[in-house]
Design a protein around this nucleic acid. Sequence first.
DNA 1: CATGGGGTATTC
DNA 2: GAATACCC
Length: 299
Amino acid sequence: MTDRVVVLLDMDCFYVQVEERDNPHIKGVPAAVVQYNSWKGGGIIAVNYEARAFGVKRGMRGDEARGKCPDLQLVQVPVNRGKADLTKYRDAGKEVIKVLCEFSDCVERASIDEAYIELTQTVEDRIKKKNGTHIATDMLKSSWVVGYDKTKDGDQQGVREKGVHEWLNSVFENGEDAALPLDSNHPQWDNVRLAYAALICEDMRAAVLAQTGFKCSAGITHNKMLSKLACGLHKPNQQTVLPQDEVSQLWDGLPVGKVRHLGGKLGDSLTEEMGCNTMGDLAKLSLQQLIGRYDNKTA
DNA sequence: CATGGGGTATTC
DNA sequence: GAATACCC
């Protein structure tokens, strides 16, 4: 089903970014947010990328993290009535949602720091308005395209740019502006829409940064499941397009537990009882086979 | 005691 | 409304 265009936008180490905005002191240096601190330095619930380079992880105790990174800045979650109070992060999340609503009237808040944005209509409007223009490689400054992103370490930016260029050429066919006007008769209509969605998403993330000061990553595909997956492929402060024609290759190497909702008991059951190690294995099963083991809806 | 507070969705 | 599953 490739009818819609959907973006998942995920804030990078959000709680730390909120604290960095409040206190520029901790910007550019290793930092983490902890809740409570009396027992072993508190539990870490967010880590910035500077601190991740030292091996600091979510779930670690503050003391343990200081062992790995002596200069780590630890910021405590405010406490209210004896409990960790996440209100300030929740409010900051609302600021982001407000910006996203400028780009679509269908925005789903999925958590404090994530939202799904239905861009189908926005993309269609943009294509109609911008018809006759094309998308140049340098308009997609922070975009990656799955299947065109093979990096052999070094020159990351060069690999990214080359991949985007090749993909745009294949989608728009020699010269990036052939086969106009663009409409649903275009032989690569779904990819044309993803390309415009990537362009809009670059603008959307720039607007989030300009209006809130926060950076984020995004996934751009035809549904929520794939956009969530794509978002995680290039972080932080980047975005990833996953064209539908690349999905089966991606699935062949992807453990089922990496997909949203399959990270728990259902995923384990698929692996142990149905023999599915990867999403590729799962895709080979028929609906009938799944109905034999799970209830209708789950199947 | 020792990740935990909080969200959605489903089922009974 | 409680219990369960899954998520960040």
